[in-house]
Write a protein that binds this DNA or RNA. Structure first.
Lengths: 344, 344
DNA sequence: GCATCCTGCTAATCCGATTTAGCTGAGCGG
DNA sequence: CCGCTCAGCTAAATCGGATTAGCAGGATGC
């Protein structure tokens, strides 16, 4: 940027020492002996001159830019992205690091180009993030580099993954249902294989369902039915309307995503059914909308902030990045949509 | 990052020329004469070796890091942030630039610290962004630097601003109302001075109201009333409920924000009033929720993508950044919540 | 009294590019 | 044949720090 910055040479001159001494005094290293008097004079000169080190110049020598790159498929189409970024950013900030944020929009060529742009700027590590939990194939440019996979898994790729604990979330949903007294009339809306637009296959749906069914079974309950549909408001509305039109009277709906819940609310409302009086609803994700719906939605929160944070912490922790899958808990947000079964 | 990169010296050696020649050949500069044969050999060697320039090293000499910093108050609490970032990022990408994204959370000290972190990394320019359109005082570290203000205004600070054209949006809302035949029974919910939590004062509310009233007046119409409240779902719900409970029967609601509209929908629904059959609703912002409500909400879109994009374009356009206010149009998203007045 | 050690500091090199200044040899005019 | 120009290239400096190697001088050991 514009006017000339104060350099370390300026500080050294001002303090009457060599640049070498200034460097050691400023970095506070103790393996090279600098007298207290000299150190003080350097520090004082730096303060007086308003010296700030040029990180770019430094990193040319040290190979560390104190910078992390984040490549994602989409940061914009999902309302969670902000939290991932914030979590990552705050963790980075705590150790004087900054984040390059990029988005490839699902385009492999763009992705490679972005990774190059990051590597050309000597980032210390790359976070490869997906906005839906799924299997991915990172671009070849990332092989052999320090990488953390965020919200995705890449078997065979030597890097740690940080993902939400979807399985346990499914179990927790079941536990909440059982605790409220639900053992029958439970329907799952959104099924296993939602979001078919992602051919790599969605992990969340399967794991949530697996955990859900497992604990329901253990609790002597079961699912009356599973409706397969996309995870969108319109789908939720359509499917629940159809269910009700067919004469089914569920007592609890497990919606696989908040958007589906919102559609379900609309359908239940039109049918004159109240939540949770007539039908309880429990959901996954905890989007903004969840707390604003009436009644407020009980849901298992996707821990995006924690995901971003942990990804950065793994990097800054130092040491080799081991190919371990870190599962981050999805906390239950108890609000008003889950109650005792109707008529009991 | 890990294993040794190919440097320009490697390329020069491989091509049998000096680093100087390699540099000129690679940068494609024509002011220094390089024979076609040499250039070809250098380019070929670079290709063979998979050479990529070290942007960090280059910028030490050139003073340009091809990097832009973005400092915002909050990127996470608002659902729009993603679009701002995406707009900025894509514009940057088009000219081989990358973006540092930071968030100060409204903390002045953190803000200064982040600006320093950016300047220490020699960013070419800084985008100072607010997530609500308002007056700001940028940190002193930014004085005299290349800065663009995004979604905010700072009188006396020498930098261009990029803001939504709220005034014209207010006018467009009035025009849409008039075109649908509304001239009476129009209420504004959310008023002028919403979001009192921001002492700097909110611009959006005032300008939207001003444009709205101006064009309504010109069209021979007027506002039956203005309800002042915060721009939140709960406030919208409460205020519209109160209005209805008091016996008022509005024919059109101008909600100053989509969140308010959502609350209004809930209140109208409970009162058995249909949208737009009984009451039309027009809104501002176009959050995700707007298209998913039933009926889908007619609203004036906050042009966040364009805001981010224009901010970066101003920077990359080159030349001095003049202290001009750029107003970006807010397009009308015509959906289903605005219809002819009831009973006509 | 001399070798050794330690303290406190500095000169010089390096990181990977860009850029300035200058060198060499061919071509050309007179 | 001499001096000049010019095309084509290279040596060396530079950017702002970090780091290595080493130097001066006093204290210490024997």
């Amino acid at each position: 940027m514009s006017e000339r910055r104060v350099t370390m040479a300026d500080v050294a001159r001002e303090a009457g020492v060599s640049p070498t001494t200034a460097s050691f005094a400023l970095s506070g290293r103790t393996d090279m002996r600098i007298s207290v008097a000299s150190r003080e004079r350097v520090l004082e000169a730096a303060r007086r001159l308003g010296y700030r080190p040029n990180v770019t110049a430094r990193s040319l020598r040290t190979k560390s830019t104190q910078t992390i790159g984040l490549v994602s498929d989409r940061i914009t189409t999902t309302p969670f992205a902000g939290d991932v970024i914030r979590g990552a950013m705050e963790a980075a900030r705590r150790q004087d690091h900054l984040l390059f944020i990029t988005e490839a929009g699902g385009d492999r060529a763009a992705e490679s180009s972005l990774v190059h742009a990051l590597l050309d700027r000597q980032v210390d590590a790359v976070i490869y993030a997906s906005m839906f939990t799924r299997y991915v194939t990172p671009p070849k440019e990332l092989f052999g580099r320090p990488v953390v996979l965020l919200n995705c898994l890449a078997p065979g790729f030597d890097a740690p993954s940080v993902v939400p604990d979807e399985l346990e979330a499914g179990r927790d949903a079941a536990r909440a249902l059982l605790a409220a007294g639900h053992t029958q009339g439970i329907w799952a809306i959104g099924g296993h294989q939602a979001v078919p637009a992602t051919p790599e296959g969605i992990i969340a749906g399967n794991e949530r369902m697996r955990g859900l069914e497992e604990v329901l079974r253990e609790g002597g309950a079961h699912l009356d039915g599973v409706v397969e549909c996309d995870w969108d408001t319109l789908d939720g509305y359509r499917e629940v309307s159809a269910l009700l039109a067919a004469g089914t009277r569920p007592r609890a709906l497990v919606c696989l995503a908040d958007r589906v819940s919102f559609g379900a609310y609309q359908a239940l409302g039109e049918a004159g059914l109240s939540v949770p009086g007539d039908v309880s609803v429990i959901s996954f994700d905890d989007q903004d909308i969840a707390s604003v719906l009436r009644p407020a939605l009980t849901t298992l929160k996707l821990p995006h902030y924690q995901l971003g944070r942990l990804a950065v912490e793994l990097i800054l922790r130092g040491g080799p990045l081991e190919a371990v899958v870190h599962r981050v808990p999805m906390p239950l947000r108890e609000r008003a949509s889950l109650g005792a079964p109707a008529g009991e």
